[in-house]
């Protein structure tokens, strides 16, 4: 059965969660590539991945961060931030 954008978003969220456990940061393109690799045969394309990322960020489940390049991470307290 073809995957929906919400299902892709959930799968992306899981990838980010796992990466976080290993102390790794993922870029949006890493997530898109991972989704295409796993689910291209189920009809997933770049456009759907873009929409899934938009949903994840608009809902606040993931946030963009910048460390030399832009990454998608779970919301957390900013390490560099001063109280």
């Amino acid at each position: 059965m073809a995957m929906t954008v919400d299902q892709i978003a959930d799968a992306m969220y899981k990838e980010v969660e796992e990466a976080t456990n290993f102390g790794k940061k993922l870029k949006p393109m890493d997530l898109t590539k991972a989704m295409l690799k796993a689910y291209e045969e189920e009809g997933v394309d770049k456009k759907m991945c873009k929409s899934a990322i938009k949903n994840l960020v608009d809902s606040g489940r993931l946030v963009y961060t910048y460390f030399g390049g832009s990454y998608l991470e779970l919301p957390h307290r900013e390490g560099a931030a001063n109280d």
Binding site: K54, V57, D58, G60, V63, Y64, T65, Y66, F67, G68, S70, E73, P75, H76, E78, G79, A80, A81, N82
Partner: peptide, 30 residues
């Protein structure tokens, strides 16, 4: 520099910056 700051839904447009002397210069802590 850098980090998480931004506005909801956007990944660009805000560049995070903090002072590393926040006690001495509290108004530029952020």
């Amino acid at each position: 520099h850098g980090g998480i700051v931004g506005v909801m839904g956007y990944g660009g447009g805000v560049i995070g910056r903090y002072s590393d002397l926040p006690d001495k210069y509290p108004s530029v802590s952020h």
